[in-house]
Design a protein around this nucleic acid. Sequence first.
DNA 1: TTTGACCTGTGAGTTGCTCACAGGTTTTAG
DNA 2: CTAAAACCTGTGAGCAACTCACAGGTCAAA
Lengths: 143, 143
Amino acid sequence: MKVKEIAQAAGVNPDTVRFYTREGLLSPARNPDNNYQQYDADDLRRLRFARKARQLGFSLPEIRAILDQADDHHSPCPMVREVFEQRLAEVEREIAELQQLRERMTTALSAWREMPDGTPDGHTICRLIEHWDETAAATCHEE
Amino acid sequence: MKVKEIAQAAGVNPDTVRFYTREGLLSPARNPDNNYQQYDADDLRRLRFARKARQLGFSLPEIRAILDQADDHHSPCPMVREVFEQRLAEVEREIAELQQLRERMTTALSAWREMPDGTPDGHTICRLIEHWDETAAATCHEE
DNA sequence: TTTGACCTGTGAGTTGCTCACAGGTTTTAG
DNA sequence: CTAAAACCTGTGAGCAACTCACAGGTCAAA
């Protein structure tokens, strides 16, 4: 398989395939005639695995670690369980943060309906945002 | 105020102040003696505004647009309302995606409790992840 | 006066791609 | 048979919003 073929088979951008190859997640053979990359079924398996793992929130270094362990005939699954549970906790924290944010946004939006727009006067820039509750917002930071 | 002082007053990293200055959100005067940046109360107001707007999900270009409009004595608030509503919709979409993801993760986790770890055998890399439901996960992509 | 804490600008690193570029190869249409 | 289109190659830059590192200048206190 050439780059475009494996990319289509996995449903990703060919540049992603090239990128993963550069990053060492894929190690295709070479066609000695034209120096093209030659991917096989095992590469496709690895690529699909990597994409699934990405959807689960694994980072590329984590995925590479799992793949490397699999290459060494170690069972990577306990590691997967561990990282997975950490990732689940993170997802739940993100949900909680976003829900807090949403709540404050809808509250602010309904409060704003009664506020005049007001041209900036040198003391306020936009009172809609300046009246946002600072301490409440402080707990909601992106990372 | 010098960089560190305004940074402390707004509760941000001094490098963030420098970065915002480079990006044109802040335009401090200069001390002609030593070429140090000199921030005033208006800069602090702009900085605090920018941070609040960031917490609300505005991008730096958006914030700069608001600030520029305020400088020109236009009322930026209608623009704020508009971008804010877009942002709220986005937050709600993110929440929905993360909730879907969490659900699939907890489902997978409980399914995995009954699965053996299994050393990779050349056909599977880690069955924990390979048995993740592909089509279900396809609807949850990061952007 | 020397140490330490600050200041300056610039450039690189972060993450996971995506795109652009310049040049080589292969396929397809005329 | 040839020319154009579509592919391949590697490398390097761009995204967002910082954060950190570096080398050199400035200033306060001991």
